[in-house]
Design a protein around this nucleic acid. Structure first.
Ligand SMILES: NC(=O)c1ccc[n+]([C@@H]2O[C@H](COP(=O)([O-])OP(=O)(O)OC[C@H]3O[C@@H](n4cnc5c(N)ncnc54)[C@H](O)[C@@H]3O)[C@@H](O)[C@H]2O)c1
Ligand SMILES: NC(=O)c1ccc[n+]([C@@H]2O[C@H](COP(=O)([O-])OP(=O)(O)OC[C@H]3O[C@@H](n4cnc5c(N)ncnc54)[C@H](O)[C@@H]3O)[C@@H](O)[C@H]2O)c1
Lengths: 213, 213
DNA sequence: GTTATGCTGTGATAGTTATCACATTGTTGC
DNA sequence: GCAACAATGTGATAACTATCACAGCATAAC
C-alpha cells in the first residue's frame, strides 16, 4: 500500500467503508472481478468517484478488466486499518451500549469488544454480552492500561461523558467514539469522533420541511 | 424566518443541530444572551462559522450584543423543522430499535415515536417502551397511512431492510432514517438518510492507523 | 504480431465550503 | 447627543472536493 502525501478527504474514508461492506457481500466465487461501475451501482457512488478514492492510495485494479473483489476488499481493510482486531471497550452499558456490545458485526470487522464498564452496582458483575462481564467504572483506568485497550466507546449519559473520557485518557486510550451529545475534550494525542444520531434525525426533519415549501 | 434561495451546505445543518443542543443547555436565566464566540467554544466551531451558518437563514442577533439564547434556540428549531412533533415509527425492535424507542430525548426534541413493528411473533403484542406496543409488520402499510406517520426508522437486519422500506413507502411515509448497512432504494418523493455507525468506527481506525505511521 | 476493445488511473476543471477581514449597527458611558 | 466600543453580518478569498474527459495499459480477437 502506497500512502501518498496528500490529505485524504473525510468523505473518501466514509465511502471506503461502504465499499468494503459491499465487497464483502458481492464477492462470490462466480464473481471474482468487479468493475467500478458495478460497485458504484450498489454503493450509489459514481464510478469515477470510486476510482478517484482508490487512487489516493495506489493502483488496485487491472485496466480493461476491473478489480479482484477479494483482493480489493483486503486492500481497503489495510487502508482503513481494520485488518486486525482493535481491542475495544464500551463505557456505559445502558440501552445503546448493550446494542453495541451485542452487535456481532464488529467482531468480524476489525474490532473486538473485550470489556465493558458501568457505575450501576446492580449491573456490575453481570454479563453484558457473550463473554463480556460488566466491570466497575473505578477499575477502568487500570484495565485499559493492562489490557492495552485501543478504542473506547462512550455510551454514558451526558453528565458522565467528560469524566469517563478523562479516565480513558488517563489509562492511555488511543481513540474514542463518543455517542453522548456533548463535545468532550481530549488531548491531541487521542483521536476523537463524535456520533450524533440526533443530528441525523434533525437533518431528516430539515429536508422534509424544505420539501414542503 | 427568511429562507434565502441559496443551497445550504449539509455541514451547516449538522452544526445547527449542535447549536440547538447546546443552546438548550446553556440558556439559563442568568445567561439570557450568548455571543458567537462563547457558543463556538462549547460547540468547538469558530465564531465566524456560526455567524455564516445563521446568515443563510436571516439575521438573528443584535450587533454589539449577541444572540438571545432562548430566541435563537427557537429560531433554529424552526429552521430545522423540529418545532413540532413528527409522528415517527421504529421498524425492527431488536437491540438497537429498543434503544431508540427508549431514548426520551427524541420526545422533547421534535419527534414522537408512536408505533413500532416487528416480524417476530414472540415480540408482537408486547410493550417496547412507555406506551408503545409492538405490532405485526403486516399491519405497517395500513397503520402508516391511517396514523399519518411521517418518519420511519429502520432497524431491521440487512436482509429485511429493502422490504420494509417498500412497505413504508407504500404506506405514504415521508422520510426514512436507515440504520441497516445497505443503501435501500426509495422513490424521489421520499427523503432518505443512512446512518452508518460502522463507518464511524472505521474512520476512527483509519485515523489511528495514520497516527501510528 | 497487430489491432480492437474495455476499464482503470489521473490531470484539468468546475463546484462547493470554510475562512478572513471589515463594514455595519446597536449599546453604553459621559 | 456624541464618541468609543463590541459583536454581528457578509463579500471576497482561499481551501477543499467532486466531476469529467481521456490517456494509459492489459486483454482478447484474429
Ligand atoms: N438510546 C439511544 O437511542 C441514543 C441515541 C443517541 C444518543 N444516545 C446517547 O447515548 C448515551 C447512552 O444512551 P442510553 O439510551 O443507552 O442511556 P441509558 O440511560 O440506557 O444508559 C446509560 C448507562 O450509563 C451508565 N452510567 C452512568 N454514569 C456512568 C458513569 N459515570 N460511568 C459509567 N457508566 C455510567 C448508567 O448506569 C447506564 O447503564 C446518552 O448520552 C445518550 O444521549 C442514545
Ligand atoms: N446493534 C448495533 O449496535 C448496530 C449498530 C449499527 C448498525 N446496526 C444495524 O441495525 C440493524 C438492527 O440491529 P440490531 O442489533 O438491533 O439487530 P437485532 O437482530 O437485535 O434486531 C433486529 C430486529 O428486526 C426484526 N426483524 C427481522 N426481520 C424483520 C422484518 N421483515 N420486519 C420487521 N422486523 C424484522 C427482528 O425480529 C429483530 O427484532 C441491523 O441492520 C444492524 O446491522 C446495529
Amino acid at each position: 500500500m502506497k500512502t501518498k502525501e496528500h490529505k485524504i478527504p473525510e468523505a473518501t474514508i466514509k465511502r471506503l467503508s461502504t465499499y468494503v461492506n459491499y465487497l464483502g457481500r458481492l464477492g462470490t466465487d462466480s464473481n471474482p472481478v468487479i468493475s467500478s461501475e458495478i460497485l458504484g451501482e450498489s454503493c450509489q457512488v459514481s464510478p469515477a468517484q470510486i476510482r478517484k478514492d482508490l487512487s489516493y492510495f495506489g493502483e488496485f485494479g487491472v485496466r480493461g478488466v476491473g478489480y479482484d473483489t477479494k483482493k480489493l476488499e483486503a486492500e481497503i481493510k489495510d487502508i482503513l486499518g481494520i485488518n486486525h482486531n482493535w481491542p475495544t471497550t464500551v463505557v456505559g452499558v445502558g440501552k445503546l451500549g448493550q446494542a453495541l456490545l451485542n452487535f456481532d458485526f464488529f467482531r468480524n470487522h476489525g474490532f473486538r469488544i473485550i470489556t465493558a464498564f458501568d457505575s450501576d452496582p446492580n449491573k456490575i458483575g453481570t454479563e453484558a454480552a457473550n463473554g463480556v462481564t460488566i466491570q466497575s467504572i473505578s477499575n477502568i483506568e487500570k484495565c485499559v492500561r493492562e489490557e492495552k485497550i485501543s478504542i473506547g466507546i462512550i455510551t454514558t449519559p451526558v453528565a458522565a461523558a467528560q469524566d469517563v473520557t478523562d479516565k480513558l485518557v488517563d489509562g492511555g486510550i488511543k481513540g474514542i467514539l463518543n455517542f453522548a451529545p456533548i463535545k468532550v475534550k481530549v488531548p491531541e494525542t487521542v483521536t476523537l469522533r463524535n456520533v450524533s444520531i440526533t443530528s441525523e434525525l434533525d437533518n431528516l426533519a430539515y429536508l422534509l420541511t424544505q420539501k414542503k415549501r
